[in-house]
Amino acid sequence: MPRYDFRCRECGSTFEVSRTMNAASDPARCPDGHDDTVKLLSTVAVGGRGAAPASGGGCCGGGCCGG
């Protein structure tokens, strides 16, 4: 089950909630009992064998900015 990060606007604590994707946008109550919370955006690293390799440095992969 996916986990979502939330932050309490009242006390500033951050916490995780496990819930289905259908319920991802539902309000979450802070562990301290506060209701004023906001869901945080999280970054996901995607990689693996299908990821493109990094090209050489410089503009356009190098070579176009020669002097």
Results as ranks from 00 to 15, higher is better:
40 L>T: 03
57 G>I: 02
7 R>E: 13
15 F>M: 04
7 R>N: 01
13 S>G: 01
11 C>N: 04
55 S>K: 14
51 A>S: 06
54 A>C: 05
31 P>G: 09
31 P>V: 01
26 D>P: 00
9 R>A: 14
62 G>D: 03
34 H>E: 06
28 A>R: 10
14 T>G: 14
63 G>R: 00
7 R>Y: 01
24 A>D: 03
59 C>N: 04
22 N>L: 05
26 D>L: 11
53 P>G: 09
46 V>P: 01
23 A>G: 01
44 V>H: 11
31 P>M: 03
23 A>M: 11
2 P>K: 13
58 G>Q: 02
30 C>N: 04
14 T>D: 11
2 P>T: 07
26 D>K: 09
50 G>K: 12
42 S>Q: 15
13 S>T: 13
57 G>N: 12
3 R>S: 15
29 R>T: 15
62 G>W: 04
6 F>C: 02
22 N>R: 10
39 K>P: 00
35 D>V: 09
23 A>F: 05
39 K>W: 01
40 L>M: 15
65 C>L: 04
17 V>G: 09
48 G>T: 07
35 D>M: 08
15 F>S: 12
4 Y>T: 04
7 R>C: 08
16 E>V: 05
24 A>H: 14
49 R>L: 06
6 F>G: 02
37 T>R: 00
28 A>M: 07
8 C>T: 12
42 S>P: 00
21 M>V: 12
52 A>C: 01
14 T>W: 00
37 T>V: 09
25 S>P: 00
63 G>C: 06
50 G>W: 10
17 V>Q: 07
27 P>S: 13
38 V>C: 01
52 A>D: 07
59 C>I: 07
8 C>P: 07
8 C>Q: 03
32 D>K: 10
2 P>H: 07
9 R>F: 15
61 G>A: 09
62 G>H: 07
15 F>Y: 13
45 A>K: 13
67 G>D: 11
52 A>Q: 10
27 P>H: 14
6 F>I: 09
37 T>Q: 03
38 V>G: 02
18 S>Y: 00
64 C>S: 14
67 G>I: 03
5 D>A: 15
37 T>L: 03
12 G>F: 11
8 C>F: 04
47 G>S: 09
21 M>W: 06
33 G>I: 10
19 R>T: 14
15 F>W: 10
62 G>V: 01
45 A>L: 10
29 R>K: 12
60 C>R: 10
18 S>T: 14
54 A>M: 06
48 G>W: 08
48 G>I: 03
6 F>Y: 15
63 G>W: 02
11 C>Y: 02
4 Y>V: 04
54 A>E: 12
1 M>K: 05
47 G>Y: 05
57 G>V: 00
14 T>A: 13
22 N>G: 08
35 D>S: 15
14 T>K: 10
31 P>H: 08
28 A>V: 06
33 G>K: 08
31 P>D: 00
8 C>H: 04
